[in-house]
């Protein structure tokens, strides 16, 4: 039996937001989140009952993130001016926005691979289906993405480990 859509939002809303943040940065993630759930609500009655709802939402979120990304590029919106609101990522002490921006700067495949793997909990096979490559390539992209982040994000690297 199909769950009330409210349940879908409650169960997957946070994951979809993380995916949007990873694909777009914190600034534009809210728009993509809204577009994702609006689009999902529209199509929900036709979704097969056996469907993997989270994978379905992540696929929509990816499409919406691409739309938002194109729109901001075309309008040449400056990304440097983040809204002057406190970080709402819930981790005290860390400047998390930097990390989200670092994620956004990753090469496209790496960014998507770590997003789907670590934020949406998808299997490498599911990710390969979205990215259109082999399972090994998906696994490698996730590992490479994480390595890049580790190098570029000081919080994840011991101070003075390299000079």
């Amino acid at each position: 039996m199909k769950q009330p859509f409210e349940k879908v939002v409650a169960r997957h809303g946070v994951t979809v937001l993380r995916v949007c943040r990873a694909l777009l940065g914190v600034h534009d993630a809210d728009d993509a989140w809204s577009e994702t759930f609006l689009s999902a609500l529209r199509a929900y009655p036709d979704l097969p009952e056996t469907a993997n709802v989270e994978a379905w939402l992540v696929t929509i979120a990816r499409r919406k993130a691409i739309d938002v990304h194109r729109a901001t590029k075309r309008n040449a919106v400056a990304v440097e001016a983040l809204p002057e609101t406190p970080s709402d990522l819930g981790v005290p002490g860390g400047d998390d926005t930097d990390l989200w921006d670092a994620v956004v700067r990753l090469p496209d495949k790496q960014r998507q691979a770590i997003t789907y793997r670590y934020l949406a909990g998808m299997s490498h096979a599911e990710i390969a289906a979205i990215l259109g490559g082999t399972v090994d390539a998906a696994r490698r992209a996730a590992a490479d993405g994480l390595n890049t982040l580790r190098k570029g994000y000081p919080g994840a690297h011991a101070k003075g480990a390299s000079s």
Binding site: A22, L89, V91, D96, L146
Partner: peptide
């Protein structure tokens, strides 16, 4: 690695 994943998957308020 845990730091990064920890931050990325931290609770959203």
């Amino acid at each position: 690695m845990n730091d990064i994943l920890g931050v990325l998957s931290a609770p959203v308020d």
